[in-house]
Computed example of a mutant assay.
Amino acid sequence: MMRDFGIDLFDRWTAMWNGDLALADQIMAPEFTLRYAQPGATVYDDIHHPRALATQIATSRESIPGLRFAPQGDAVIEMDDARTGFVARPYGAQFTGAGGAPVAVSGTDILRTTNGVITEVWSVSGGLGGRSFY
């Protein structure tokens, strides 16, 4: 049961990054911490509220044509009955790069949850030669 919840939460996290911005208010805690370990993503370090996150995701998506995230591989879930714990899963991202060439990047997100909402995120991706897709 907690495994299903964790997978669903990660799927909703991914859908939020794919443009379903209303999910920010549903899956994110009223105050949270983001930790992105890739070039260009430091703008997320100072975001701690769902609406601000949704706004930044929208801004990022506008500047990156065709950006699409997808979960990959198996999720690792450690969560108690109060839906407090961790969900970790690899993901892939694709978008249209310079000159129209498709670009693919992979990474891993780790979501810390408290009572069923995301309170902290660690995200690491392959990077794009100093440019971030965030």
Rank of each mutant, 00 (worst) to 15 (best):
Q56M: 12
I47C: 08
I118F: 10
R131C: 05
Q56F: 03
A54L: 05
G85E: 02
D20Y: 03
I57Y: 06
R112M: 09
I7V: 15
E120M: 03
M2N: 15
M1E: 12
V124H: 09
H48G: 14
R3V: 00
Y134A: 06
A52F: 04
A37T: 08
Q38N: 10
T59K: 10
Q26E: 15
G127V: 06
Q38T: 12
Q94T: 15
F5R: 09
D11C: 03
T33W: 00
A54S: 12
V105H: 06
Q26M: 07
Q72W: 01
E31F: 01
E78D: 15
I7F: 02
P102C: 01
P90Y: 01
R83L: 14
S125Q: 13
T113C: 14
P102N: 07
T119I: 10
A70F: 02
A70T: 14
G66H: 13
G130S: 10
L53F: 13
R51Y: 00
R68Y: 03
V76E: 02
V76M: 12
D81Y: 09
D46L: 07
M79A: 14
I110V: 14
I27L: 08
E31R: 15
N115H: 10
G92T: 04
N18C: 07
I110N: 00
V103I: 15
V124F: 11
M16K: 12
T42W: 02
T84K: 05
G127P: 01
G73F: 03
T55Y: 02
T14C: 08
P50C: 03
R83T: 00
A93T: 08
S63A: 13
W122K: 05
A88W: 03
A41H: 12
G66K: 13
A15I: 11
Y134M: 10
S106M: 02
S125C: 08
L9S: 01
R68S: 15
F133T: 04
L23T: 00
Y36D: 06
T55D: 15
D8S: 15
L21T: 05
R12W: 03
V124R: 02
V43T: 13
R68V: 11
F133K: 05
S123G: 15
A70C: 09
A37Q: 09
M28H: 04
A52S: 10
A41K: 06
A75R: 14
G85K: 04
G6I: 08
Y36Q: 08
S106V: 06
A29K: 04
V121R: 12
G19Y: 02
H48I: 14
T108Q: 09
G107C: 01
V103C: 01
A29R: 02
A98I: 12
Q94F: 00
D8N: 13
G85H: 04
F86S: 11
L53N: 05
